[in-house]
Design a protein around this nucleic acid. Structure first.
Lengths: 205, 205
DNA sequence: TGCCAGTAGGACCGAACGGTCCTAATTTAT
DNA sequence: ATAAATTAGGACCGTTCGGTCCTACTGGCA
């Protein structure tokens, strides 16, 4: 029933993350999903716009399964989970072979100013993401310094990761992302209470 | 002579930073620059692609004038310059009213995977930018810890700023960028040698 | 049996796209 | 004065775009 729909969604997701939403034509999606023609496509989606919305949601759910799920693992120390989550983002990017970075970041850069419908939905995605990190930070509160601003820190983490993925794509070099991930972990460690040094890397030598 | 050219370049820069390169048509640029017709435009630029390249260069030069120039001020302490530079990025974004963020980041996200010609040019822009920060970091070497990796740190700074601009556009809230700028400064301060506390903010209360 | 969602495929639409070509008026430098 | 560059403006081209419409064949299910 919805099998073919998912097929279309997947094909569209790949194309959009590689070439952007505007540069991905409905005909491309049809070719990618091996449909017979336009009417076949419009049997499942009422417009290209709606397709875009659903792709965005699906990408987020996928990301939530693979990445955000780690943030909720109840058996692992929250700060370790944060570290694992950052690793997961790196792994996710590694899988795509450097190409086609964060589907949210791409759509955000492309459509945030031009298309209010997308902007709002992307904002919601970021917000859901940020709230996951915020609640993790809240959970890790006993280990953190009192003056840690969870809202600001969560935004910083997301911004750093999004920027890192972008730079990695431009330079076609995964080590860029790896380096930034490392620095990001050090920055987070900076907020840990003195004495509660769970990971706390300082001065390597 | 080249006056009209600059007019076109400016109009195109505005449009591209607002709607992206693909979604900006030559006709839009003509309208924006108040040209008489297509032939008038193609009198100055041989293709839309070439226009894009020149816009990219011009945007970088502008950014270099306003932002990167600060990094080279010889009379100011290097780490203070870095801080001022971050302030300049915030100010630049504030001027555009939250809309149309980093012209490099936008083009990068839109075209890095799709268009090799742009990818290479954007990579060069980032590289020039990174090298400015690297040489500043080199200059500040006596104040920094011995194990500071200038390459990695410069990349981190750029990634954080690019990601911050992106998030700010999505949320239409400049305070996002301001918060991240603050955290970024704290991260940089983390690399300062103990005892040489120029700015070093730790534990506010 | 009849119904209906899914599959298949093609014709077609108006609009927008990047780009070319051509003519002619106006300005500028020599 | 004259040649060259710039400005002006329109016609046109082939292609692609998102989207509609129409026909017809398939399968399963009541």
């Amino acid at each position: 029933m919805t099998e073919r729909r998912l097929q279309i969604l997947d094909a569209a997701a790949t194309l959009i993350s590689e070439r952007g939403f505007t540069s991905t034509s409905v005909d491309d999606v049809i070719k990618g999903a091996k449909l017979s023609g336009k009417s076949h496509f419009y049997h499942y989606f009422k417009s290209k716009e709606e397709l875009g919305y659903e792709v965005l949601n699906r990408q987020f759910e996928r990301f939530a399964d693979r990445g955000l799920a780690i943030l909720r693992e109840p058996m692992i120390d929250p700060l370790d989970r944060l570290s694992l989550f950052i690793d997961a983002v790196v792994a996710l990017q590694a899988e795509s072979g450097g190409r086609g970075g964060s589907p949210f970041g791409n759509l955000a850069a492309e459509l945030a100013d031009a298309h209010e419908g997308f902007r709002i939905r992307i904002e919601a995605v970021f917000e859901r993401w940020a709230s996951q990190i915020r609640s993790l930070l809240w959970e890790a509160r006993p280990q953190l310094q009192e003056d840690v601003d969870a809202v600001r820190l969560s935004r910083f983490i997301i911004a750093a990761l999004e920027g890192a993925v972008l730079m990695t794509r431009v330079k076609r070099d995964l080590s860029v992302l790896e380096g930034i991930a490392l620095d990001l972990k050090r920055f987070i460690a900076m907020h840990v209470r003195d004495g509660v040094t769970t990971v706390r890397p300082r001065r390597v030598e």
